[in-house]
Amino acid sequence: MNELRPLLASLTGEMNGWLREDDPLIGELTVPDEGDDVVLALAAQSRRAAGLVRRSDTPLSDAMSLWQASTRENLQLRCSPEATTADISNLLDSWLEHPMPEVSEPGGDRARSVRLPVPLRQAIVPLLEYGFTARTVTLARRLNTPPPVSPSPALIRPAREDDGERMRELMRELMATEVSFGSGYQRAPEVSDHHVEEALTLHDGWAVVAEIDGLVVGWASMAPPEFSGWAAPSVRPRPAAYFGNAVVDPAVRSGGIGRALASTLHNHAHSHGVDTIILDAASNNTWSVPFWHRLGYRPLWTTWRRRYPTSD
């Protein structure tokens, strides 16, 4: 690692320079740091690409395990603007020749992933050739002006504690859909309840529900800037808020309820001085990314994933 640090620092600086010119909304990259979780340090033969591979494990009971394998290797890639597909292939080849770690707990799953800025198009073909698929797209939109209010057949109001049971039911339905698309991982049903509990801790209008004839048919939540620090580095403009969840009953989809939920939170965020909203959408879910694009979001980052069998 020590011998690669000057190269990683140089490539990070170069990468930030050309990304800033290509898309000023994309966040600043930092130089990958050392740590006990680093398992590999890699460099292409050309020295135009390099990176660190980090090992991480998430308990199956953790809500984050709904969206990612419980045992993961993540590549932090840095490259110069002159990096070619051959350079990326060379780096991936060095990474993948090492065996994938075993799962950290029974019933777990394994994957390798790399999160890349969308303008790094020379990485796409090598990733596909090495069996990676686009799993998640990180999108963002700015709130330069008050967003338009979308009409809705439902009453949009702040979420309450007594909405919890119905919100949990809708969240479990959403996770079943994401698993069927290959976007999420099969977990115990109650694991997704953590998202609802987290949303109900948000007060002052940061979590809302859609109600028709007394029945909650959808809900959405957004973390205010003070709780979005982990996601904020994805963008340059601040303050940034993270749009965590948006769920609509399948029986009433395509009726404007999802748009109304999002519009309500957009206006709430704007009134609280938020500049940029960030969210992650599942690439495999053919409804998700087009929906957010219609609401003014655009892609900044793509997380690529290669799944592995539970054991070799």
Rank of each mutant, 00 (worst) to 15 (best):
W230Q: 13
F243C: 10
R110E: 03
V235F: 03
E105Y: 04
R72D: 00
R48V: 01
D36G: 13
L215K: 13
S80E: 02
V31M: 09
R160E: 14
A69H: 02
G273E: 06
E3T: 15
R47P: 06
R112N: 08
L127S: 06
D37W: 07
H266I: 00
Y130N: 15
I88T: 10
I88R: 10
L42T: 11
V31N: 09
T201Q: 07
M167I: 13
A282G: 13
L7I: 07
M15P: 08
E82Y: 11
D275N: 08
L139H: 01
A232G: 03
W230G: 05
R172M: 00
S152E: 05
Q45C: 12
P146I: 03
V114I: 04
G51Y: 04
I88P: 09
T58I: 14
P309Q: 01
D33T: 15
A123Q: 04
G244E: 13
S311D: 11
P101K: 01
P158R: 00
H268A: 01
P309D: 01
N285I: 07
R160G: 10
L200K: 05
Q45R: 15
L128V: 14
L7T: 10
P151A: 12
V209M: 02
F181M: 09
E3D: 15
V125A: 15
A223Y: 12
R253W: 11
N90W: 07
M15R: 03
G296V: 09
D204N: 14
W292R: 00
H266K: 06
L215I: 12
G214N: 06
L96F: 04
L128F: 13
L75Y: 02
L200Y: 03
E161G: 13
E97H: 04
I26F: 05
V39M: 09
P299M: 08
V118W: 11
W18V: 06
P148S: 01
E173G: 15
V247R: 03
P151C: 02
G273P: 04
R55E: 15
L295V: 02
P119C: 01
